[in-house]
Design a protein around this nucleic acid. Structure first.
Lengths: 280, 280
DNA sequence: CACTTGACACCTAGGTGCGAATTT
DNA sequence: AAATTCGCACCTAGGTGTCAAGTG
């Protein structure tokens, strides 16, 4: 990892956060106040394993956090197009709180209830894809996987894992940063990146699964949990088609509409689904 | 991997090979005809697990080659110092034939015999360390390991493995290449790298072990072969001190003298042990 | 009571030499 | 006969949820 590179776009991401707060939405192909650099303005990102992500999302995805760090399942993986093949990019992820609430699970009716305001925010970290930096051609060649990313609830973690508060809800974000070789490129940092959020990847951080249906879906779909399977080893075709369509609620329709195709970066702070921003 | 970088020093390495053939030796700190770039002239490389390598070398190291590719054991690992911390380097390995001979093993007296001239040379490949390119600081931070390198006897291999002829003897080489950002840096390619050979890492490529003592030492020292151990699980302290000193032959003394300490690059084509070149 | 921790059995993924079968 | 190939049992290394125990 290149330290000098990292420092370069910390500024950029900070800008991104504040812009997200101040702007209500980002219309697809709408007028732009800030022009993005050509190296990032055409970047398109497609979430892999969408069908599986949606299955989990319908039930209310939960992700285990442990002291030593736990992988995400499903793994966050994307296919990228529209990069400048010869330009250098850094790819990274972070996690932002979906709201300012703490939750608890009501077993009697299998639903999440608000249990007060959020705890003090965990130290915010970024996870750089280990292949960073690399030329666009390399990133676009095949699926980019964040399978080495781990989630922890240890506030003092020194393994570089992503620190989250259990019983809080998070939205993964994906950032594409163009490594500008120009001198004083920091002056253009805000032009040199774009960000993507896929609403169907939101999840509740937990230390133990609460919703039994989530547990069952993890066991059915994660190869490492095969030891807990009881049913046929048949139903393992995730990743192509959703086993069931999104249900009739507004959120379901939104997800279907916005992430059914690949996603284009929009001008200021790009989202996987432009109108499907986390509720704030 | 950066293709443009690769192309840059192919020339350099080619030069290296021809120089090795034409020059009888490379005296430690002697007068130099060609001045190396400051980024590489002070680079020092120390072989890890020397004691283990020497134990194998005394018996006549054998490395398995398979169609699908086999790791080396011991693994080629080095500690590096003397790099420019902020300069970019590419690290790579290749394997050169020790001689022009084909061998066979005489079981009756446990020795290798010459069995004619070498077969047609296998396609010569280079193995780039997967972290390449990276700044000197990163390479020097910890041991650099080539544990993902695999050896194959499949002339048509398309997995990027190192292709070797079975029953032929090879010398691993290690190359440090400075990535010169200057325009027309290819004109200086021969200045921008240095190479290291450790005589104790020479080996015979085989499809099945010939010397039973080699088999036993592999079983005793490779964790993955633990299933074949019969003796105490005690004698597993390789890497610190040699269990037995090199025996009384000239080669043993040579190895001891030349690779007992860390090794400095010398001017033209640097070797781990300057006078311990493979016999040609 | 709600939540967290840690030992555990059970997996995946892949690196070993063995030994029978096959090829040259 | 010599050399190679392949399935195999046996490992390492580490990712699963479970369950009992611990914490506040």
């Amino acid at each position: 990892m290149y330290m000098e590179v990292c420092l370069l776009f910390l500024l950029g991401l900070a800008l991104s956060q504040s812009c997200e707060l101040s702007l209500p939405g980002c219309t697809d192909g709408g007028a732009l106040f800030i022009t993005k650099a050509p190296q990032v303005c055409g970047v398109r990102v497609q979430l892999e394993m969408q069908a599986l992500w949606r299955q989990f999302d319908q039930l209310g995805t939960e992700m285990i956090v442990t002291k030593s760090g736990r992988r995400m399942f499903p793994t966050f993986q994307v296919r990228i197009s529209g990069m400048d093949p010869s330009a250098e990019y850094v790819l990274l992820m972070d996690f932002i709180p979906v709201d300012d609430k703490r939750y608890r699970y009501a077993f009697h009716n299998s639903s999440w209830l608000v249990a007060g305001r959020a705890d003090v925010a965990a130290p915010s970290r970024m996870h750089f894809h280990p292949d960073s930096p690399a030329p666009g051609a390399q990133w676009m060649k095949q699926t980019v996987s964040f399978d080495t990313l781990k989630l922890t609830n240890n506030l003092l973690d020194d393994n570089g894992h992503m620190i989250l508060n259990s019983m809080h809800r998070y939205q993964p974000r994906f950032h594409v940063v163009y490594v500008d070789p120009a001198p004083n490129s920091h002056l253009n940092a805000y032009k040199n990146f774009c960000s993507f959020s896929f609403p169907e990847t939101r999840f509740m951080a937990v230390t133990a699964y609460q919703n039994h249906r989530i547990t069952q879906l993890k066991i059915a779909s994660n190869p490492f949990a095969k030891g807990f399977r009881t049913t046929d080893p048949q139903d393992a075709d995730y990743g192509s088609l959703p086993a069931s369509l999104p249900s009739g609620d507004a959120f379901g329709r939104l997800v279907q509409r916005c992430s059914g195709k690949e996603t284009q970066a929009c001008g200021l702070s790009s989202h996987g689904a432009s109108a499907a921003k986390p509720e704030r």
